[in-house]
């Protein structure tokens, strides 16, 4: 898998960069931390999500994370990637992140995880 490609994303005009998680990161999402094994939430957050967000914030564009095609979304992966985004970048408020970050899936089985990712960010924001 090419994490570099995910870091670069696929730009749609000037306003939006799509990250197809299954193709550009891995279809086999893993545990919470890098030490747990490959394709962890920590790896996704630090190698993909944060660089994409930084770029999007600088260019006033959006990052669209597309979950379609992943085998599943382990709960600890999701929390570390999205809840952990606010822990990693304490200078980013929830409003700031949600103004830039879009999470999508067209797969009904994956839709609950889209909602859950947003809720993890909200929960982390309330804790900070």
């Amino acid at each position: 898998m090419d994490v570099g490609a995910a870091t670069r994303g696929r730009t749609r005009g000037d306003r939006m960069t799509e990250v197809h998680v299954a193709e550009q990161f891995s279809p086999f999402l893993g545990g919470r931390y890098r030490d747990d094994g490959p394709w962890s939430g920590e790896q996704f957050r630090d190698d993909v999500l944060v660089p994409q967000m930084e770029r999007a914030l600088a260019s006033h564009s959006q990052v669209v994370i597309i979950l379609d095609g992943v085998a599943g979304v382990p709960s600890s992966f999701l929390e570390e990637a999205f809840g952990g985004l606010l822990r990693k970048r304490k200078d980013w408020s929830l409003d700031k992140i949600e103004g830039v970050l879009v999470i999508q899936s067209g797969d009904p089985e994956l839709l609950p995880y889209v909602r859950l990712a947003h809720e993890h960010m909200k929960r982390q924001s309330q804790r900070q």
């Binding site: 279809p27 893993g30 747990d36 094994g37 085998a71 382990p74």
Partner: peptide, 26 residues
């Protein structure tokens, strides 16, 4: 380790032998 690709290999093999795996994401 927590290796999703290996877990998915098991799921795919089960699908092959049974013809289906319900609730695959879960």
């Amino acid at each position: 380790k927590v290796e999703g690709e290996i877990a998915d290999q098991l799921i795919r093999q089960l699908s092959d032998v049974a013809g289906a795996t319900p609730a695959r994401v879960k």
